[in-house]
């Protein structure tokens, strides 16, 4: 148990570093505050190593912490929407079987961006943000893939360490 708590803490810390990198150099998607979701890597790993509830709390804790440290209110709302949606999608897909870590990570990346965009559309009260949908879908696909590759490698090592 103590080990798992330690893991959670390390993962949150790692997620914060990723988020920090994202805050430092935001991608220019045209909507301020929208992020790529690199920290999703940590959530994917947590989903495989820890209990769903623990993984979920890691996801939420890091979003709130990052928003307070270097974010703004809209960016926190975007991140929360993206984070919660992608977590739910990933959890459901993982339970449904048939998807590899790669597939789950891709689904997470894509839904992360969709979640952010939906909130952005509500916040700015302008449907024109949907112009960015195709770009964000493909961007989510690519980050998801990259995250999937790395997560797979990391998990192989971590699982040995954790047991």
């Amino acid at each position: 148990m103590a080990k798992k708590v330690a893991y959670s803490a390390i993962l949150v810390a790692l997620a914060m570093i990723f988020s920090y990198v994202e805050v430092l150099i935001p991608f220019h998607f045209g909507i301020p505050g929208i992020k790529l979701g690199l920290a999703n890597l940590v959530v994917v790993i947590a989903l495989y190593l820890l209990k769903p509830s623990q993984a979920f709390s890691i996801s939420v804790v890091r979003i709130v912490l990052v928003a307070f440290l270097f974010g703004s209110m809209p960016s926190m709302i975007y991140s929360l929407a993206g984070g919660v949606l992608s977590f739910t999608v990933m959890l459901l897909l993982k339970k449904s079987k048939g998807f590899s870590m790669m597939g789950i990570s891709i689904a997470g990346g894509v839904s992360h961006n969709v979640g952010q965009l939906l909130v952005a559309a509500i916040v700015v009260e302008n449907m024109s943000v949907f112009y960015y949908m195709p770009v964000l879908l493909v961007a989510g696909l690519i980050t998801g893939m990259l995250i999937g590759i790395v997560a797979k490698k990391v998990c192989r090592h971590l699982r040995v360490a954790i047991d």
């Binding site: 490698k153 990391v154 090592h157 040995v160 360490a161």
Partner: peptide, 9 residues
């Protein structure tokens, strides 16, 4: 192992 994980990170 941690070293490896860390270096990947």
């Amino acid at each position: 192992r941690w070293k490896r994980v860390l270096s990947v990170g």
